[in-house]
């Protein structure tokens, strides 16, 4: 038990070390959350106090959930039969059960929502995400930033000559490579697969020149990378990219067209 609590403490500290200020409430909340992910031996009496504390925290959480549920009582009434009776009887078990059902439902909605905007192959965002999430309803940019269009020039050739499986692996490799390199440079970015062989990267809070340098280096690295298959095939693809700044409320269509035009002219 002590070992488990030590483990929870380690995980919690690890979660929080990046915060400048660690308030006790945040610590407790995280600790509580992490504690619930581990199995706890209730029969171990020597840690009864700790266990009680965890239970109290859990109880508080359930209370908070109850409050949330109460706030949305009208929706729950329609959704779940018997909630009203349970509330009147203060039937915590049923409410907890309902809560877990709603949580499950919520998770499912989040999952479905994610799936809708995620590219199956690369797990990056898809084009739908650009128009439904990243841009506003009029397809205008929500914030200022820099946009990069990356084109895998030899994709069609590789697809026809080597087959879709290998071409897809190339796409996955490139997607991961770009993400890894941008993360290492501590860049805050969003990637979306725009077409089969084209990615759009959106970077905010960075100057165009800085982004341009970075993408230039990533392109050079990619160009010098030979991918080897188990069957002895050596593939080295070529890439193109174009970069453009965008401003809040600017038409995305214009920026995207401009990016494709530059790519074409290269």
């Amino acid at each position: 038990m002590k070992k488990q609590l030590k483990k929870i403490t380690d995980i919690t500290i690890n979660d929080l070390l990046n915060k400048e200020v660690i308030m006790p409430s945040i610590y407790f909340e995280k600790f509580n959350k992490n504690a619930r992910t581990l199995d706890i031996d209730i029969k171990d009496s020597s840690f009864g106090k700790e266990l009680n504390k965890l239970l109290i925290e859990d109880f508080n959480s359930i209370e908070r959930y109850m409050n949330t549920i109460e706030k949305n009582a009208s929706i729950i009434k329609e959704a779940v039969e018997g909630t009203q009776t349970a509330l009147l009887n203060k039937d915590i078990d049923t409410l907890t059960d309902i809560y877990s059902q709603i949580s499950k439902l919520e998770k499912e909605v989040i999952h479905l929502n994610k799936q809708l905007f995620v590219d199956d192959l690369t797990s990056s965002n898809n084009r739908k995400w650009i128009y439904n999430k990243f841009l506003n309803k009029e397809a205008l940019f929500k914030r200022n930033g820099v946009c990069v269009l990356i084109d895998i020039v030899d994709f069609d050739y590789i697809d026809s000559e080597y087959g879709t499986l290998l071409a897809n692996n190339l796409i996955i490799f490139i997607n991961n490579f770009i993400k890894k390199n941008l993360k290492e440079e501590k860049i805050d970015f969003k990637v979306a697969r725009f077409f089969d062989n084209q990615f759009l990267i959106f970077i905010e809070e960075k100057k165009e020149k800085e982004v341009s340098n970075l993408i230039f280096n990533i392109k050079q690295l990619l160009r010098n990378t030979t991918l080897k298959s188990k069957a002895g095939l050596a593939i080295r693809a070529d890439y193109k990219y174009s970069i453009s700044k965008y401003k809040e409320s600017e038409e995305s269509k214009e920026i995207f067209e401009q990016l494709f035009q530059v790519l074409k002219e290269e």
Partner: peptide, 14 residues
């Protein structure tokens, strides 16, 4: 190992 002549042009680019 199989080396693709079409993709070999990328070697030249570097």
């Amino acid at each position: 190992m199989y080396y693709d002549a079409y993709l070999y042009k990328n070697e030249a680019i570097s």
